[in-house]
Design a protein around this nucleic acid. Sequence first.
DNA 1: GTCCACAAGTGCAACTGTTCCAGTTTCTGC
DNA 2: GCAGAAACTGGAACAGTTGCACTTGTGGAC
Lengths: 200, 200
Amino acid sequence: MPDSPTVGRRERKKAATRQAIADAALELFLEHGFERVSVRDIAEKADVSTTTLFAHFPSKEALVFDREEEVEAELTAAVRERPEGQSVVEALRVHALKAWVSITSDPRLHQHNALVDQTPALREYAERMWMRHAGALGAVIAEELGRERDDLACSALARFVLEIPILANGRHDPRAVVETVFDLLIHGWGSQQDSEVDRT
Amino acid sequence: MPDSPTVGRRERKKAATRQAIADAALELFLEHGFERVSVRDIAEKADVSTTTLFAHFPSKEALVFDREEEVEAELTAAVRERPEGQSVVEALRVHALKAWVSITSDPRLHQHNALVDQTPALREYAERMWMRHAGALGAVIAEELGRERDDLACSALARFVLEIPILANGRHDPRAVVETVFDLLIHGWGSQQDSEVDRT
DNA sequence: GTCCACAAGTGCAACTGTTCCAGTTTCTGC
DNA sequence: GCAGAAACTGGAACAGTTGCACTTGTGGAC
């Protein structure tokens, strides 16, 4: 028998079912568009009942975001396991740039992204899900800086950093957005306040 | 006949219907809770068909947020009509503090707020609606600073300022949150970076 | 003042996401 | 080997939302 160290057949089957559902969903969504596919269609294609579908995913939108836990783990890891001497903010900037590279290089991710972008319902859901990471991220930042878990400056930083991809969304040069906004976060808006001053 | 300058009977009736629906909805929600009231109940109470209800409001949640346009107008006005010599950021800070006072003093607002807070579906909807103002606010800020409509620094500032009430939500002293986060936005996170340094 | 086009409202049926319920099958730990 | 939990099923039901064919009241043109 190949691999199955500690995981029993049950768990493996469960994972397989989940995967089958997610795969069926993505395929149908990509082919016909999110709104033109019903949950019943997906369940049908994955050969399960709709009840089972909802036992694995809390909503139709969730079918598209199968990896949220891992994403959050990567995000917090980027801060927690940053190189010696690197600041938290710097680590986040690096992580943001890396994520941007992944999206442009991996065609699967790119396709997935396009689907979400073209579907208002998915865009909103994605933003909401994304912002949910603020709690975890804020906590890690606070921990790394030796502050209380719900320290305001850390929570704020977390939320603001998470806003960046949203802010970058429709713009032509996302990398520049990341750089510019991180600089603003570090130095503040005070320096370039009101009327005249340099255009970014 | 009392007042009706330029508005015809038609428009008045339409507005009345809309108000009747909103009133019925709020009353039922406050009495029984958002999820335990169906749209059909509301339509019934307002003595209209559910079709009519949805002709006036795009969704069940929208029934609770009847004033979004005005809120946005107040927000942009706070920036546009700020006192001579006051910076944009300062104007926003003042506006935030004023809004906070309104909520604590006006029992209607307070009640409304409590309803939203206690209902997850409404909280999410409220945040989404709130964040939608980012476009308009960013544009006004840009205009006031003589920058292009979609200037990045202005868009970012708009989004970050709008995040503040969300950030303040569960905390004991919202006014302090407003003050602290505005200071962070003005001076940046660079000054109090990493490890040691002063706790806010 | 009459008349017509049109906006507002109606009632009902249908669709879709989501949940409930009462089972059946399939695994796992003892 | 067995008991019980967990996964899964099928179908009905519920709630938000939309479409459709239709009535009614209003406002502007004449």
